[in-house]
Computed example of a mutant assay.
Amino acid sequence: MNYWNCDNFEGLKAIGALYSARKGYELFGQYCLQKEQGLKKQAIATVNQFVSHCKTLPLAEQRQMAEELSSLGFWHRETHQLLAYPLIVLLKGVLSQWTLDEPNNPIPHKWLGFIAGDIDSYERALTLEPTDEICLTQVALSHLNSVDFQTHHLSESVLLGGVFHSCWG
């Protein structure tokens, strides 16, 4: 029998082992291992320590860390407990400020799109880097999901949303 949440716990264990040995990410790795073991209070205390530590880093290191952890979260979504709320708040703050400081840099826009669930950030990143596969995919999925939502009651003769006109006539 396969436990429904085993991907999450296996991911936490593997990522925790990897990041525990990585300079600057030891507390993050420890958080993952504690979370995998079910040590909730200790895990939250550790992730809070990690967040506090990150806030003391130079800006360039904070940005590198935000890019690293956002990418990690994106590629390991089955490990849904990977990015705890205090860490998400930190990442949103770093990425948001980065987009203001460097409005023409697609990297913070892309990862803010993921962390904040913000399609506008993905679209901004896409205007800056039109070949970014992550942004292309996320924008396309957003539009497909919108069409799906608007049309899911068509069998009842109900269209949720407006009829739009194509630019081709």
Rank of each mutant, 00 (worst) to 15 (best):
L95I: 05
Y25I: 05
S20E: 04
A21W: 02
L59H: 07
T131D: 15
L100I: 13
A116C: 09
G117D: 04
L128W: 07
A125Y: 03
F50E: 00
G11H: 01
V51W: 03
A84W: 01
Y85W: 14
L159H: 06
L112G: 00
L72V: 03
K110T: 09
I88V: 15
L83S: 01
A66R: 00
L57T: 02
Y85T: 13
T56H: 10
E68K: 01
I107D: 06
E68V: 01
Y31H: 02
G162P: 09
Q42D: 07
H153M: 10
F149W: 15
N145H: 13
L18E: 15
V51I: 03
H152V: 12
W111Y: 09
P103L: 03
L160F: 09
T56I: 06
Q150R: 13
L144M: 09
W75N: 13
K92M: 14
F28S: 00
I119N: 08
I15C: 00
A84Q: 05
Q150P: 08
Q30G: 04
C167H: 14
N48W: 00
P58M: 08
S71R: 07
E102Q: 10
T56P: 07
S142K: 06
E129K: 14
Y122W: 04
N104H: 12
W168Y: 11
V94S: 01
N5F: 11
S155M: 11
F50Y: 04
T56S: 15
G73Q: 05
F114T: 03
Q150N: 14
P130I: 11
F149R: 14
C54A: 10
V139Y: 04
C32E: 03
P106S: 05
L112M: 04
T151P: 06
D7I: 03
W98I: 04
H76K: 12
S71G: 11
A45E: 08
G38N: 06
T151W: 02
A140L: 08
Q97S: 13
V51E: 03
Q37Y: 07
D118M: 02
G38T: 05
Q49D: 08
K13G: 02
H80D: 15
L160Q: 08
F28V: 02
R77H: 12
F114R: 00
I115L: 03
G24Q: 05
E26F: 00
V158C: 04
L33G: 01
I15D: 00
